[in-house]
Design a protein around this nucleic acid. Structure first.
Length: 636
DNA sequence: GTAGGGTTAG
């Protein structure tokens, strides 16, 4: 339970009682009329021209005003001229102006010049140090940021809240955790933990390193909360896939008076996407519309993703079409959506539109989405030509191992297993488990035992504890009738004590989300569900369904294996759906792992025999099963 | 003059 803290503050007050307000020390003015100062405001080029003609020293305020204009306009040439003027006239910049120059250079993407400025400053203070640390931090130069922070400590300048809030953002991820902890002790020592900016940064650091309990601890200790700190902790849960916890916390904090903004809603939508909670997602969408929040691209991107992950691509596209401004993430979210639903044609079409409109440049994720979309949609030639285009053209996007992985998937799917293997062997990367795994899947689908065995051996070396690989190889052996090898695999798993992550399936009925795990005895209607599975099984057997016993890797007799298969969570959810979903409506199911071969087959027969549409989202993609056929083309 | 949370992929 949450500790009740009534103190919520609004965003308008940016400075907490602990933070130091900006200093206002201005050096004495040099000769210049106020009138002239006013004159040059807003006219950067004219002002510079005038300064160049007169060649005289100008007052501090003029430099200040000019630098503001330079950084607002990202006008680096003009900024350099101001800097040169300062030096030429022998006006040694005071700490304030030096810091302004650091910020100006940073905003104009001239990090080296910013650093040079800091190094040349005869005097530095906490603001100048922090400005430079922030510059490194914003651009992802983690090492440089930390190094400078240490130098700052050694110089005897005490960090302030700005410094801590900044440096902690450079400690994100598992690699930064050690540094983050050290800085945390410093934060405690200097009594900055209750500082709302420092606290938010600190809890975010822990959340991003996967230490959600430590993050929650920091959050609970905050003497006051605001929208950022609350969003940070909600987002922390959502990013770790702890969707239910994220939503529970959101509800709780709302009750306690938290305000929400577009970042909060974007994080909540992430959690809802994870749960495939379409109705709740729509409610959030309605609330966003009612709250008259400005139209934030980030929020729309989240909506596109939420609708696609909740199975409703039409709504995704509606949001996409209604956007007046789109970023590369907008396009990527839509492309990924089409891909996961197996709509290869739409992926390619949208990619061409993206090229044509040329508003935003495709990035590494775009190419991944497009090639993988082609793969899931069965468009082998298109996928290959886009990969070729990526390699040859100057897109500014270097192919990464993931792109090679998409091509392996593409070739494997097309049955070109040998070509996929050759492709792996000549690619400039060491293949990962994901790449071998994708090829093993292809070997199963295309019943290629020779390559499959080789690939499985590679996989067993890399990740001996992943049960999924053994199951796929077992399916492959079974498909060619090599039952003794199926037995051998089972023994191998026993020896290595390989365990499988428990499979879970969810189905929504009314307002309730029903969860099932294999051989579930916990559901209140378990008897009814089990009987329904049996009934369905009998009926579809008449239509030709044969249980795929190779999906069971326990050493039991065939009768027992069939019983185990009937207890799979997907089948329980399917049966539950058949009981409660009105005729004519699709049965929507979600699974935490990839769907099993036998359950996939079961759903296909069921969709035909009962004329029922099944929409199943597994950990990899959507399966739209209609009339005995699946949108994945039996390849996943 | 310096500060915290967010969206796409794997």
């Amino acid at each position: 339970m949450l500790r009740k803290i009534p103190c919520f503050r609004l965003r308008t007050n940016r400075f907490s009682s602990l933070s130091v307000p900006p200093t206002q020390t201005i050096s004495p003015s040099l000769p210049i009329s106020n009138q002239k100062h006013l004159c040059i405001k807003g006219h950067l080029k004219e002002a510079l021209l005038e300064m160049a003609i007169e060649g005289e020293r100008v007052c501090f305020e003029v430099y200040d005003s000019l630098l503001t204009q330079c950084l607002n306009q990202r006008a680096i040439r003009e900024g350099q001229r101001v800097h040169a003027h300062i030096i030429k006239t022998g006006y040694l910049p005071p700490v304030y102006l030096g810091t302004r120059l650091i910020v100006m250079y940073n905003k104009c993407d001239c990090l080296n010049d910013a650093r040079q400025m800091l190094d040349e400053m005869p005097e530095r203070n906490v603001v100048s140090w922090t400005a430079m640390i922030s510059a490194y931090s914003q651009r992802g130069y983690t090492f440089e940021a930390l190094d400078l922070f240490v130098q700052m400590l050694r110089s005897g300048t005490p960090p302030n809240g700005f410094t801590f809030a900044t440096i902690l953002t450079s400690c994100s991820g598992a690699c930064g955790l050690n540094h983050g902890r050290q800085i945390h002790s410093l934060v405690i020592k200097r009594n900055f933990e209750p500082h709302i900016f420092v606290g938010s940064s600190l809890l975010d650091m822990y959340a991003k390193a996967g230490r959600i309990h430590e993050a929650r601890g920091v959050f609970e200790r905050l003497p006051e909360r605001d929208v950022v700190s609350c969003t940070a902790i909600i987002a922390g849960y959502a990013q770790l896939g702890l969707d239910e916890e994220a939503l529970e916390l959101f509800r709780q904090l709302q009750k306690e008076g938290m305000e929400s903004n577009y970042v909060t809603y974007a994080s909540v939508l992430t959690a809802l996407s994870g749960l495939a909670a379409l109705d709740h997602g729509r409610q959030v969408h309605n609330r966003v519309l009612r709250s008259e929040l400005p139209s934030y691209v980030v929020l729309k991107n989240s909506l596109i993703d939420m609708y696609s992950k909740c199975g409703n691509l039409t709504y995704s596209r509606r949001v996409f079409d209604g956007m007046s401004e789109r970023t590369v993430i907008t396009w990527n979210a839509m492309l990924v959506g089409y891909g996961k639903h197996g709509l290869g044609r739409e992926v390619v079409e949208l990619f061409r539109l993206m090229r044509k409109e040329n508003e935003v440049k495709p990035d590494s994720i775009t190419f991944m989405a497009v090639i993988s979309g082609c793969s899931h949609g069965g468009l082998v030639d298109e996928g290959l030509s886009i990969f070729e285009e990526m390699i040859s053209a100057e897109n500014g996007v270097e192919p990464e191992i993931e792109h090679y992985g998409c091509v392996v998937d593409l070739l494997g799917r097309a049955g070109q297993v040998h070509r996929a293997l050759a492709f792996i062997e000549q690619m400039p990367f060491i293949p990962t488990a994901a790449i071998w795994g994708s090829l093993l899947g292809a070997c199963r689908v295309h019943a290629n035992v020779t390559v499959g065995e080789y690939v499985a051996r590679c996989l067993f070396d890399i990740e001996p504890q992943n049960a999924g690989n053994y199951v796929i190889l077992s399916n492959l052996y079974a498909s060619v009738g090599r039952w003794e090898d199926v037995t051998m695999l089972r023994q191998m798993m026993m020896e290595k004590s390989v365990t499988k992550e428990p499979g879970r399936s969810w189905i929504k009925q009314g307002q309730m989300l029903h969860s099932f795990h294999a051989s579930d005895r916990s559901h209140p209607r378990r008897e009814e569900v089990a009987a329904k599975v049996k009934e369905l099984s009998e009926k579809i057997k008449e239509a030709g369904y044969v249980p795929d016993l190779s999906c069971v890797l326990y050493d039991v007799d065939d009768e027992q294996k069939e019983r185990i298969l009937l207890g799979h969570s997907e089948k329980l959810a399917l049966a539950f759906g058949m009981i409660g979903t009105p005729l004519g409506l699709p049965i929507r199911i979600m699974k935490n792992l990839r769907i099993c071969v036998d359950c996939h087959n079961f759903a296909k027969y069921l969709s035909k025999a009962y004329i029922r549409e099944v929409s199943l989202r597994d950990s990899n993609r959507f399966h739209h099963i209609v009339g005995g056929r699946c949108s994945c083309g039996d390849y996943w």
